[in-house]
Simulated scan of single mutants.
Amino acid sequence: MKTLLLKKEDIEKIVSMKDAIDAVEEGYRAFCSGQVIQPEYIAMPFDAPRGELDFKAGYYSGNEIISLKASSGGYINNPSSYGLPAGMNTVLLWDARNCALLCIMEGSYITGYRTGAAGAVSVKYLARKNSEIVTSIGTGNQARNQIRAVSHIIKIKEIHAFDAFADSMEKFKKDIEGELGIPVILEKTSRAAAEKADILITTTRGKGPVIDASWVKPGTHIVAIGTDMRGKQEFDPEIFRGAKIINDSIEQCVKKGETWHPIDKGIIKKEDIYAEIGEIVIGSKQGRTNDEEITIFDSTGMAIQDNMQAYKLYKSALDKGIGTEFEFFK
């Protein structure tokens, strides 16, 4: 049996944000329909200038695929010291029927696109229908993917952006306006950006709250992306008081997500979490019910997202003759 090797340049030929959104939505549906085995992911943080290494494994009965993704991030010295990216991703796929290794693929597009797609799926089900102003706190690569993905769901009138690094903001503005033709307004403070949002997206690696509860207007939909392990935080926990809280995985978010902070402070209890996003996708719970409620989507990232998207890319590569096959087992 042959194993397929897909390098980054191979993935680049077949990846698309629309397909990623479809894959993530399908993954959420499968997760809340009892078709997924997804053990708790392993996060391994290291002291600076090293970052962290995460392992996410999952199985989906619908495609009979077991996936494992190793994802690093925050290795800030990599570019200068080793000529490598600050974060790298590798995805492995096995045939669950016999545990034969089907594919080894570079996973940066998978991680970037499926994370952006997660935000877009939440916008589809939870944002006000008349939402048109998006705020991005953080202007790195994931901020771009969030905007790309959300632009598939709604017509964005304008983007308000803030980042602690002015050069990053300027590049974000140039890139997004050039690629998508959406006006980007650079704000001098995170407050000025947050107060204008219909949809508020955070993609920082925050070590403390960067958004105060008083800045969030009624009817805002929040996409909280940056907190996926203990020690990270982007929001004043008071924002959660009275909000409609949706997690990708409740078990993950109460331990490692933004939701952990208000629980730790006694502001909410686990029972106050309204739903997992998959419950809303399959229709067992309603999404937004009025234009005044604040909705919060806390996304820690799920193995089923990687599984769904990686398998679709694997099948597409086989169909198009992309990648390199080799004998791993004989």
Score class of each variant (00 low, 15 high):
K2G: 00
L5Q: 01
L5P: 01
K8E: 15
E12Q: 14
K13R: 10
V15R: 04
M17D: 02
I21N: 13
I21V: 15
A23K: 00
V24R: 00
E26W: 14
E26R: 14
Y28W: 12
R29M: 09
C32M: 11
S33F: 05
Q35D: 13
P39I: 06
I42Y: 05
M44L: 14
P45R: 04
A48W: 04
P49T: 11
R50P: 01
G51F: 09
L53G: 04
F55Y: 12
A57W: 00
G58Q: 01
Y59F: 12
G62I: 06
N63A: 09
L68R: 01
A70H: 02
A70W: 03
Y75Q: 02
S81K: 05
Y82F: 13
Y82C: 08
Y82E: 08
P85F: 05
G87R: 08
L93Y: 04
D95L: 08
D95H: 08
A96M: 10
R97Q: 12
N98T: 04
C103R: 04
I104E: 12
M105S: 10
G107P: 01
T111C: 02
G116I: 11
V121E: 06
S122P: 09
V123K: 00
L126F: 07
R128C: 05
R128W: 06
N130I: 14
E132V: 04
E132W: 03
S136F: 00
G138H: 09
G140R: 00
A143F: 10
R144P: 01
R144H: 06
A149P: 09
I153A: 05
E158F: 07
H160V: 08
H160Y: 12
F162C: 09
D167P: 01
D167V: 11
F172V: 13
I182L: 07
P183S: 08
P183G: 06
I185F: 07
T189N: 05
S190E: 07
A192R: 14
E195F: 01
A197P: 03
D198L: 08
I199Y: 05
L200T: 04
L200N: 04
T203V: 15
T203C: 15
G206N: 08
V210Y: 04
I211Y: 03
D212T: 09
S214G: 00
S214D: 06
W215D: 11
T220P: 13
H221Q: 10
V223H: 06
I225E: 00
I225W: 00
D228Y: 14
R230D: 05
R230C: 03
G231N: 13
K232H: 14
Q233I: 15
F235E: 11
D236L: 07
D236P: 03
E238P: 01
R241V: 02
K244M: 15
K244W: 10
I245V: 05
I246W: 01
N247H: 12
S249Y: 01
K255I: 15
T259F: 03
T259C: 03
T259V: 14
W260M: 07
H261T: 14
P262I: 12
D264Y: 11
K265I: 08
G266F: 09
I268E: 01
D272M: 07
E279M: 10
E279A: 03
E279D: 15
I280Y: 08
G283W: 11
G283R: 06
S284H: 01
K285P: 14
K285A: 11
N290E: 02
G301S: 09
I304E: 00
D306C: 08
Y311G: 00
K312H: 10
Y314W: 05
K315S: 05
A317V: 12
G321T: 09
E325V: 11
E325A: 12
E327Q: 05
F328H: 13
F329A: 11
